[in-house]
Amino acid sequence: MSEQTLPFAGRLNWRAPLPHSRRGKVLVAIRLAGVVALAAIAANTPGFFTAVSLFSLLNTTSFIGCVAIGMTFITLSGNIMSFALGVTLSTSGIVFMAALPLGLGGALIVAFAFGAAVTGAQGFVVGYFRANPIIVSMAALALITGGATLITQGQGVYPQGDAAAPLKGRVFGVSMPLAAFIFTVVVAQIALSFTRFGRQLYMVGSNWRASLAAGLDPARIVLGAYIAAGLCTALAGILMAARYSSGDLELGIGYDYSAISAVLVGGTAISGGEGSAIRSFVGAFIIAICQVLLLLHGFSTQIQYLTIGVIVLLVIMLQTLADTD
């Protein structure tokens, strides 16, 4: 193991089990088979293609999806995941609710700035000092949870007035969370594919040392990735707080795990440098579809948790086929 790879993110060994091209084809075939199987089950499930089930599917996926897009930036930058995005979601919702007396615009700015600052601080430490991202995000989780509990005394924050009402409406006939999710996916994908930042992010994620040698400033790019993650998470937090008309620390519990599940199921590599926002979009929907299918077939919520866990484990095991180095 070279000194430059992060501990415990990389591969244990350096020999390839199959030639690259064949491994890639096997992987694509397995993924296609999975999607086809899922579609077949969905088609044979009575009630799946009804409007109610689809709309509830789309709405619940939107919140997780926004966080997953944010997580995608962190994963792509080679920093695996952040455990603090769930609590960042809840706290930006709280900040939004508390700032509502400033008016909708002011509250939005404050909440976005909060999300970007909190997550950006992790990005700064991870990028400039190359601290371990997992440990830093655990520290951030404890710090934000503790700080927020201390300030709110563990109580929910409720809005003054109805300045947040526009966020509960519909845009072009779709609900606000879904519109925001699609907007986030489009913007994120454009940023990743067509901007210099996106290209540099892929390079930093796939090889930090090479990006340094190529004259990039990897620290700044990692910082940018974390700020983007903070913005996406704050968006989810704001919409969630508006939807439930309260900001509460409980809102975001488990969202970091759901988000990283979506990112990985979508096929973004956990070692960084490979993946996209659209993949996470697809991943979030695959997970949501699985949940709805299990629900329609009469399985309880606990089976859903287990299924998602097993799917993530399998997807990670499959990634060994995609790993090319």
Binding site: F8, A9, G10, R11, L12, N13, R15, P17, I80, M81, I134, Y257, I260, S261, L264, I270, S271, Y305, L306, I308, G309, V310, V312, L313, L314, V315, I316, M317, Q319, T320, D323
Partner: peptide, 16 residues
Amino acid sequence: LRLGSIGVTLGGLLTL
């Protein structure tokens, strides 16, 4: 499978 521990144990965490 020559995988890193974070990925595998993350899947393990969710499964457990």
